[in-house]
């Protein structure tokens, strides 16, 4: 009985992750978007995030996987179906949006649950910036994500940052949907 239950949870979790991964490959559908962050200072000082506004979709918090799911997976498998979601950025910006803050809160919860976990946050950019400047911008994106995580109580020495600029796009396309996918702070688990 208990076994089937955890299996169901696992399947739901997988579905959520796969849905999140596939989102960017489809043309954008009209749906209400949360407004961008209005308080960039809040992101850098790391104060508590504003409460979710009523118009927003409910926050999807990945259910805590059963202990053995993470424990038994290899790092590669873990990164392939990562419990840590990426957060996305506006063009030319390294401000963490309200949506991004929710993602980071969920990621922080995972990191707190697994104290041994160490991550590298990769900063990525879309092709509409130059290769050179994007390296600095990606660095700022990764750093913004890290700063916010630290403000949520995650130890700074568990989180490394690296920028890849526009060198490794997630979506090789050349349209808005691809660019949105490529402007991100991406989490890679390096130890568990």
């Amino acid at each position: 009985m208990k076994k089937t239950q955890s299996l169901v949870i696992l399947i739901v979790l997988l579905a959520v992750v796969i849905a999140a991964c596939n989102k960017g490959n489809k043309p954008p559908v009209a749906r209400p978007m949360p407004p961008p962050a209005v308080d960039p200072a809040g992101t850098s000082t790391g104060g508590p995030p504003p409460p979710p506004k009523p118009v927003m979709e409910p926050v999807i918090v990945p259910p805590m996987p059963a202990e053995d799911t993470i424990g038994s997976k290899t790092l590669d498998d873990l990164n392939r179906d990562s419990p840590l979601r990426p957060l996305y950025f506006e063009l030319d910006s390294s401000d963490v949006s309200a949506e991004g803050q929710q993602v980071l809160q969920a990621n922080a919860a995972v990191l707190k649950k697994y104290p041994g976990m160490q991550v590298t946050i990769e900063g990525h950019c879309d092709e509409r910036g130059t290769a050179e400047y994007n390296l600095a911008l990606g660095e700022r994106r990764a750093l913004a994500a890290k700063t916010y995580l630290v403000s949520l109580g995650i130890s700074a020495d568990k989180v490394k940052t690296v920028s890849y600029g526009k060198e490794f796009p997630f979506d090789a396309g050349h349209d808005d949907a691809a660019w949105k996918q490529n402007r991100r702070a991406h989490f890679v688990i390096t130890a568990k």
């Binding site: 050179e132 400047y133 390296l135 600095a136 911008l137 700022r140």
Partner: peptide, 8 residues
């Protein structure tokens, strides 16, 4: 020495 990006 500037809080914004200096690069390249």
């Amino acid at each position: 020495n500037n809080p914004e990006i200096d690069s390249t």
